[in-house]
Simulated assay, not measured.
Amino acid sequence: MIKGHCLCGNIQFETEADPRGPSMCHCGQCRRQSGGIWSSAYVADADLTITGDVTWFASSPGAKRGFCATCGSFLFWKALEEDTTSFALGAVAAPTGITLEKHIFVADKGDYYEIADGLPQNA
């Protein structure tokens, strides 16, 4: 069982499914919203239970981002035409049992850091 919550505890989520695609996103939107690199994994919508009042922001025509309006924690990313939801690995209670697989959107990464962990990097 994977469980997580926002900083204030207003929003909680859990899943019994094995998370897929654990990655670190370096895109400009994730960097601006999180203040750095956003790490996430995803599960099928049917396998994710969310409690609390998530505020959704339409960040692009094809996706939205879910956050807590009370504490500001950025918790979810959802492609509108997919049946999966990504959740923030930083919000998951340890031990997670999750291992990162890759870095994504590295062509848009900040110029103030290097990626040196040897994981695959997708432009």
Rank of each mutant, 00 (worst) to 15 (best):
F67P: 02
G28H: 03
T84Q: 15
D83C: 01
D53S: 06
I11E: 03
T55L: 12
F57I: 14
E81S: 07
T15E: 01
I11H: 01
G62I: 10
A17S: 05
G72P: 06
P95Y: 08
A91H: 00
F74R: 10
G35F: 03
Q12N: 09
P22G: 07
V106Q: 05
C68P: 01
V54S: 04
I11Y: 00
K78Y: 11
T99A: 15
F13W: 02
Q12T: 09
F87D: 03
E81K: 08
G21W: 06
R65D: 11
I11Q: 00
G90I: 01
T84N: 15
N10L: 14
A58D: 15
K64G: 05
H5P: 03
F105A: 13
A123N: 09
L7R: 00
I2G: 08
Y112T: 09
I98P: 08
I104S: 13
H103Y: 05
G21T: 11
C8W: 04
G28C: 09
Q29D: 08
G9A: 03
D47G: 09
S40E: 08
G62T: 09
S60H: 00
D47S: 14
S73T: 10
F57R: 08
D45P: 13
C71Q: 03
G21L: 13
T15W: 01
K78D: 13
C27R: 00
G62L: 10
G62Q: 12
G72Y: 00
I98A: 07
G21P: 08
I50V: 10
G35M: 02
D108S: 15
Y113R: 10
G62C: 06
L7N: 02
Q121D: 02
N122W: 15
C6M: 00
G66S: 08
C25M: 01
K109H: 15
L80S: 05
V106L: 04
N10R: 08
A41L: 06
A116W: 08
L100G: 09
W56V: 07
W38P: 09
I104P: 11
G9P: 02
D111E: 12
H5G: 14
Y112A: 10
M24K: 12
R31V: 00
C6T: 01
I37P: 01
V92A: 13
F105W: 15
A17F: 11
K102Q: 15
P61H: 06
T99E: 15
A88Y: 10
F13V: 00
E82I: 08
C6R: 00
S59R: 09
P61T: 07
R31Q: 04
A79N: 10
Q29F: 10
D45A: 14
F74K: 04
D108H: 05
V92F: 04
E16W: 03
W56E: 02
M24A: 13
T15V: 11
E16T: 14
A94P: 13
A107S: 14
A63I: 02
F13M: 03
L80T: 03
K109F: 07
E16N: 12
G9N: 01
K109A: 12
G21R: 11
P19N: 04
L75S: 04
T99S: 15
F57N: 07
C71S: 11
